[in-house]
Design a protein around this nucleic acid. Structure first.
Lengths: 249, 249
DNA sequence: TCGAGTCATACTCACTCTGAGACGAACCGG
DNA sequence: CCGGTTCGTCTCAGAGTGAGTATGACTCGA
């Protein structure tokens, strides 16, 4: 029997019934604080609980499913306006039996980073979607609290060695804008002078536009220079976090 | 309707039919070269091709499924002998429609690191399993070449900032053993003196046993000291690879 | 219009980490 | 016993680091 004949007669039947979903950890910065996109669940199970946005995978790639769900929950369309500037990457897959009481559900979690997006309008699966500060999230449905924690860990780590921070700011930004991203995600303010020196010394992190902001900050100071994201994919040398003593355990 | 009533009447039916599998990128070092565990496929599709070991997920966690598949393909049992020293971590999930011609298959890939394991005996799903040097792998079935490439990238990167290298060596090892791991995975020999200094200066990377190897190497030299893996989970400072100019693109 | 406060940017300084090389002693095979 | 190899240590110059200071451009409110 050759491969053609085999495939024509193939009967996809005796594998366990499993549903595959995507869940999104969408992060943005509003008012200097890190926020995550949540939905309030309308139906069982966990009716009324907060949860990460997500849904079943259709006849599409996993990446496309994540982008579609993100678009549905925020009310924006892929490629429309600000949504095409979103950075999306696969985080991890969660598939413990029993994580969903209905049936076996394997969920591919995605991590999304975006400049401040408008307030979302409700999608079809959710009674409502909204941005919540990550330090005021509280309990979440399913194992979503663990997924969010993994997403935050990943985001904090990737700020160190990738130009990820540029995904949180407008296309033209100042060094201070970038510093505010690090402060919000890491929860501590980097030393302004050293941060400035390091960002400019890493090849390909930022490109100067030659322009200067039209106005200074609200509280004064000189008008800062404007930069665009460079073409680096990895920061070399990295911008390491101030000493964390969590290296051992 | 409360949640109990909802769940009792829940009918898992109208989600798309998807199969979930695990695929394993199992790496080890033999004769100073990095090897990956492969199987030769017995049945269609890709009959006769080489592939990564893997199989369907049963009523078990994804991690357990990966461990079970690894045990089946190597002929070792979990917890038996050397297999309990294997380091196993989730790599990434691959789910493009069409990656398997039979049906929609979402595959959760795992990365395994082990000290040199005995030659495997064939599992049930595979006509045979064997270790192949990673630089002589050639074409693989499905999208397994891409999975392997992602796994190698991850392994090379994790050597820098985690004590992963200790998973490739015996419980008691010399600094030179460790250096050989870095040389095999990175493809270049680190500077012996500097490597020695850095390994010993990173807190928690290795602990001295106080012992000395019974014999020196085949080609002479003093008898090296023996070490055990320390309790660090992250290396601080990291052992960075010699300059790679792939940071930009 | 003026003064106090804020901030971008540049610079200094002491310290640490790094790569490259050198060296002596221990140990191998022949 | 000898030549060659390796372990472990040391040195040195250069790069990167955190912490602090300095200057002048800008804000707001008096």
């Amino acid at each position: 029997m050759d491969e053609r004949t085999f495939l024509d007669g193939y009967e996809p039947a005796q594998f366990p019934a499993v549903a595959v979903t995507v869940d999104i950890v969408a992060l943005t910065i509003r008012d200097g604080r890190l926020h995550v996109l949540l939905v309030e669940r309308g139906g069982h199970p966990f009716a009324g609980w907060r949860a990460l946005p997500g849904g079943f995978v259709r006849d599409e790639t996993l990446d496309d499913a994540a982008l579609r769900e993100l678009a549905e929950e925020t009310g924006l369309r892929p490629g429309e306006g600000r949504l095409d500037r979103v950075h999306l990457e696969q985080l991890r897959t969660y598939g413990d039996p029993g994580r969903d009481p209905r049936m076996r559900v394997v969920s591919v979690a995605y991590l999304a980073f975006a400049p401040s997006l408008p307030d979302p309008r409700a999608g079809s699966d959710a009674a409502g979607a909204f941005w919540a500060p990550v330090d005021e999230v509280g309990e979440l449905a399913f194992d979503h609290a663990a997924i969010l924690a993994d997403g935050l860990d990943r985001a904090r780590a990737k700020l160190e060695y990738t130009p990820l921070a540029t995904a949180f700011v407008e296309p033209e930004f100042t060094i201070a804008d970038l510093r505010a991203v690090y402060a919000a995600v890491w929860g501590e303010e980097p030393h302004a002078g050293n941060f400035h020196r390091k960002v400019l010394s890493v090849p390909g992190f930022v490109d100067s536009t030659g322009e200067t902001a039209a106005r200074a900050g609200e509280r004064g100071g000189p008008r800062p220079r404007l930069y665009r994201a460079g073409d680096a994919r990895l920061l070399h040398p990295a911008l390491l976090r101030p000493d964390r003593e969590d290296s051992v355990r």
